[in-house]
């Protein structure tokens, strides 16, 4: 594993080229629309899990309502395109911005308080979002959901299964790339400092509150973008897709993949989207396998598969704190 990591580090361009060729060729290797769809869903979750990782993994905050921002993005995009006649390419960034605005509001209201309050608030916000969507019939069409969300087109070409796949690969790659750059910037170092020790960070001149709100908003923008893609991919949105259970699924992926790393969320999304599909033949027992895999990971590698610092780990000890 370490040698592989060294190889990737020493040959970044070769690695990037190999990954690009692999991702580009993947739909043709899979050949089957169902597999391409599963790959596309992996892409959606890579965005969601990577963005939640900014909150949980980098900054050490805990959000239980990520699906709400995902849902806000999906509804914003679905409503703008079906009711106001917007173009998908315009609705996509706007969905991110609207989700980000809600993220900022939640962040401003709660991030001055201790971490646990953010967890409660976001849990409540997730439920409130779902209930508002269900009950505000004149605005969101309530339990009816929004059907007929348009298929994106690009220079006159209408997206097909492969089109969606390539679009989500580009979006996920951009998300991971941007998060990678931010992580290795001054902002990223400030966030890690907050995670490791808020008081120390503050005494070093880090604006703890400001950076927390920034990180939270940043994560919500990506969740909104994932939601927008999802709305146009599924072409039907309803509140059922954005319940609290969805938030927990995303958190589980962060935990399994490993918090605080760039690669962990990708691994978590990959495994936890594919695993239940692979075990479909077990019908009602497939949930058991899902649970078993989680327990195994918690027992054998509490930091997550590729994690720097896991949610399941014991409180940090100085030795574990830094790898390098």
């Amino acid at each position: 594993m370490n040698t592989l990591r060294d190889l990737i580090r020493s040959r970044p361009i070769v690695t990037a080229a190999v990954v690009t060729v692999f991702l580009a060729a993947l739909p043709f290797l899979l050949g089957n629309n169902y597999y391409v769809r599963v790959a596309t869903i992996v892409g959606i979750y890579v965005i969601l899990v990577s963005s939640l990782n900014i909150i949980i993994g980098f900054t050490g905050m805990f959000s239980l309502g990520h699906a709400a921002f995902y849902g806000i993005g999906a509804y914003t995009s679905a409503m703008l395109t079906t009711m106001a006649g917007w173009n998908f390419w315009l609705a996509l960034p706007v969905a991110g911005i609207v989700a980000g605005i809600f993220g900022t509001l939640i962040g401003l209201a709660t991030l001055r308080l201790r971490a646990v309050f953010l967890a409660f608030t976001t849990l409540g916000f997730g439920e409130i979002t779902r209930i508002v969507i269900l009950n505000w019939r004149s605005f969101t069409r309530g339990p009816m959901g929004i059907a007929g969300v348009p298929i994106p087109t690009l220079f006159g070409w209408t997206f097909d299964r492969y089109g969606y796949y390539y679009l989500v690969v580009v979006l996920a790659a951009l998300t991971v790339g941007i998060i990678y750059r931010v992580y290795h910037s001054r902002v990223g170092r400030a966030l890690v400092a907050i995670r490791e020790d808020e008081t120390a960070a503050r005494s070093m001149g880090v604006n703890v509150f400001g950076y927390k709100v920034l990180a939270f908003t940043f994560a919500c923008v990506f969740a909104g973008i994932a939601g927008s893609f999802f709305a146009h991919f599924q072409r039907f949105v309803s509140a059922d897709s954005f319940a609290n259970l969805e938030s927990f699924a995303i958190i589980t992926m962060v935990a399994l993949g490993g918090t605080g790393s760039i690669f962990g969320p990708i691994l978590g999304a990959l495994i936890l989207v594919i695993l239940p599909e692979v075990f479909r033949f077990l019908a009602q027992y497939r949930g058991v396998i899902y649970g078993l895999v989680l327990i195994l990971v918690i027992v054998l590698k509490p930091g997550g598969l590729a994690g720097v610092k896991g949610i399941f780990e014991k409180p940090k000890t100085p030795k574990r704190r830094k790898r390098r």
Binding site: R37, I41, Q234, D240, E277, A283, Q284
Partner: peptide
């Protein structure tokens, strides 16, 4: 199994 989740049903 759809789990009652629209996305699973579409998959």
């Amino acid at each position: 199994d759809t789990k009652g989740n629209p996305q699973e049903s579409a998959t």
